[in-house]
Write a protein that binds this DNA or RNA. Structure first.
Length: 715
DNA sequence: AGCACGCCGACT
DNA sequence: GTCGGCGTGCTC
């Protein structure tokens, strides 16, 4: 048989099957591989690439486990072909916890009653026997028995020794909490209408529904209602909910528990391996009905997946940027198709791709227009930094300061957003103009305060904070521009009595920090991207954007869309509770179309204009893209390799090749980077084109090539 | 990927 | 002389 292994190989390896073993495609097997043993999956009949007598024997199989479902195997095939990744790498995501398969299922020590001689029984021993006789499904686990009899571990040990009890291992019953699907919260008529529309179609096989609901319209309650319906209607059906960020799972789980009276299975990379092991098995055996997780949950071996919910479907973080490069939203649709299931894509601001698919009639669009909070979403107010100039080294303008003052005075919270970690993005020598650069990358070193250092965000290179310039020995070193730490410093200066909390991706205990904010233990919250996502801060009255211009210019074709989504989402952070919200946006380009659209709250118009631009240029979603990133230590070799690949590029109608050109960060970890963009008409099979092209053109070993189909961040 | 093999520079 | 750096090649 051909066995696929979780290693970067495009195909499986042939193995011989021992006489006694019965195997089918999808069986998990242990095989010898080189000097080691690996867990793999039987993929089909042998390929005969190697003579049969040269093949090794399969060592072990797991007949008690369900096969890897056909739908998942098909997804792995599809994903590998689409992303140009080796099949084995995709498989690796599906068996990320091999112990779930190879290890014995978790068991607990349990005791059964052997025989009793009523004669000399101590009171404690009597109680143990009574406890065991009282229950029908013997044995009882150690913990149950101790609890129900009140006897100590010593008593049990004594009885075991005396031959009164027998000890055995029982599998731990997979947690199967009773989900209270029926205790519904009252939905508003609009919500109920949308929920019913989704429910009515759940049995129609594969389909995609886009659910667009303005911030605060209660999308989550709507899909909770759909989940509840599915739980009641199909006693085996499973549901997967994807969230874009791990940090959002805590708050989501709280809402889920409130609604259903029990937890959903949680799956992401920070969940301990032991828990993932149990969850993986429970999912495979169909006992775990609901899973919530990050991208990687898409490759769980669901026995009967009925519904995939992609929450915040517009989030760029659904794109995996390492290893197998895939878009989890698109992969969820692909999985739904393989499973004959429904996919529900939810967002307050649907991605242009999804909007386009709705317009094409591929996806069905459902909308929630009513906001149920007391206050409307705040209208972003532009602060023209040319009219309100900042003092040197200051970044909070007078109008923003006033608004914050007002909020704090009323006992409310304020939030400042800046998407830059550290204290300052650049340290400059004022005497000679020297800029501190990373020795390994073409990037400036970022100055940090806690602890004081210069740090490269591309390669992690760190050096202590210099006291003088290495070029001219001058001591006048000036930080240029702000990071969140510098904003925190300024805020402390402006509001000496306020309690200030800074949050960025290098924060340690994020859930606890968020908890503190909810509990009102902070007055001013300063943070990067992550504070924009999904969290509800009920007492937040003002959101200030320090630098609204970041992301306006340059970047790739999605930059404007991303920028709008982010700022819009930030506006939605304010005024979610019992407080009216305000959003202030500092910019030097208040006339920019994006700023105007934000201020006018004309999202539809802005997105329409974006769509038109994309259509004119043949950009996604009207055309297709692949980004090729070449890198290597020898810049000449990298450039030559890219050029030679370009010369061999297939000349298909309408396919254009842009570049190669140095990547935006031209050197990272001492590797020089060049990139090339392939732009093709919508109907092009880009994966196949790339596959055939690259197969014809071997690259020198010193140059690496990374192919990104449907890239999100490039240019 | 993960490991063995193998060929050159810094130490006992 | 030996340890160990990581470049190259192989795994049914």
């Amino acid at each position: 048989v051909e066995v696929l292994l979780p290693r970067p190989f495009a195909c499986g390896f042939d193995y011989r099957v021992p006489e006694h073993m019965q195997l089918r495609a999808g069986d998990y097997v242990q095989v010898p591989f080189g000097a080691r043993e690996l867990l793999g999956v039987v993929w089909g009949a042998g390929t005969s690439a190697v003579a049969e007598d040269k093949c090794k024997f399969i060592l072990n199989a797991y007949p008690e486990l369900p096969l890897m479902p056909q739908a998942l195997r098909a997804l792995i095939e599809w994903c590998a072909a689409y992303t140009l990744s080796p099949k084995g790498m995709v498989l690796k995501m599906a068996i990320s916890v091999p112990e779930a398969i190879t290890a014995q299922p978790a068991s607990a020590r349990a005791y059964g009653l052997l025989h009793v001689e009523a004669a000399a029984l101590t009171p404690a021993r009597k109680r143990v026997i009574e406890a065991l006789q009282a229950v029908t499904p013997q044995p009882l686990t150690r913990e149950q028995l101790m609890q129900q009899s009140g006897a100590s571990a010593a008593v049990l040990a004594g009885m075991l020794k005396a031959g009164m009890l027998e000890e055995m291992a029982v599998p731990i019953a997979p947690m199967q909490p009773a989900l209270h699907a029926e205790t519904a919260t009252q939905l508003r008529p609009e919500q109920q209408h949308v929920a019913d529309a989704v429910k009515a179609q759940l049995n129609a096989g594969f389909q995609v529904i886009a659910l667009e609901g303005v911030t605060g319209s209660g999308k989550t309650e709507v899909y909770f209602d759909v989940i509840a319906h599915l739980l009641c209607e199909d006693s085996q059906g499973q549901i997967l909910v994807l969230l874009p960020e791990i940090v959002l799972t805590t708050q989501w789980m709280q809402r889920f528990e409130t609604r259903f009276g029990a937890s959903a299975g949680l799956w992401h990379s920070s969940v301990p391996a032991s828990k993932r092991k149990r969850l993986w098995r429970a999912v495979a055996q169909g006992q775990q009905r609901i899973v919530v997780g990050a991208r990687s949950a898409l490759f769980l071996p669901f026995a009967k997946l009925r519904l995939l919910v992609v929450d915040e479907e517009h989030e760029p973080s659904y794109k995996q940027e390492e290893g197998v490069l895939y878009q989890a939203r698109d992969m969820a649709v692909a999985r739904a198709k393989q499973e004959g299931a429904s996919a529900l894509l939810c967002s307050a601001t649907l991605s242009l791709e999804t909007q386009h698919n709705c317009a094409q009639g591929k996806y069905q669009l459902l909308q929630l227009r009513e906001r149920h909070g007391e206050f409307a979403e705040p209208q972003p107010q532009l602060i023209d930094l040319r009219a309100h100039p900042l003092l040197s080294g200051r970044f909070i303008s007078a109008p923003l300061q006033d608004a914050m003052q007002e909020a704090l005075g009323a006992g409310h919270q304020a939030m400042l957003y800046l998407n830059r970690r550290g204290y300052s993005p650049l340290l400059l020598c004022r005497s000679c103009g020297h800029r501190f650069q990373c020795p390994n990358c073409s990037a400036w070193m970022v100055q940090h305060l806690k602890p004081p250092r210069l740090h490269c965000h591309h390669c992690d290179w760190t050096q202590s904070l210099p006291t003088c310039c290495p070029e001219c020995d001058g001591e006048d070193l000036a930080p240029c521009g702000p990071g969140v730490e510098r904003i925190a410093e300024e805020a402390a200066l402006l509001f000496p009595d306020a309690r200030i909390l800074t949050l960025s991706s290098d924060a340690k205990d994020l859930p606890a920090q968020l908890e503190r904010i909810m509990a009102g233990e902070a007055d001013i919250l300063i943070g990067t991207q992550m504070i924009a996502k999904g969290h509800d801060f009920p007492n937040l009255a003002v959101v200030g954007v320090i630098d609204g211009d970041v992301g306006l210019e340059g970047g790739d074709i999605r930059a404007a869309e991303r920028c709008y989504q982010l700022l819009h989402q930030l506006a939605g952070r304010a005024g979610r509770g019992k407080v009216a919200g305000k959003m202030l946006l500092q910019t030097t380009q208040p006339d920019h179309a994006l700023m105007q659209a934000l201020a006018a709250q004309d999202r539809v118009g802005f997105m329409q204009a974006q769509l038109q631009m994309r259509e004119l240029g043949g950009w996604p979603p009207f055309g297709r893209l692949a980004n090729l990133l070449f890198d290597g230590f020898d810049e000449q070799a990298v450039q030559r390799a890219a050029q030679s690949l370009l010369r061999a590029a297939p000349a298909y109608d309408g396919v254009r090749y842009l570049g190669p050109a140095p990547a935006p960060v031209a050197r990272v970890r001492n590797r020089y980077r060049y990139q090339m963009l392939v732009k093709a008409p919508k109907q092009t099979n880009l994966s196949q084109l790339m596959q055939e092209w690259l197969a014809r053109c071997p690259l020198p070993a010193s140059v690496r090539l990374r192919v990104d189909i449907d890239p999100y961040h490039f240019g």
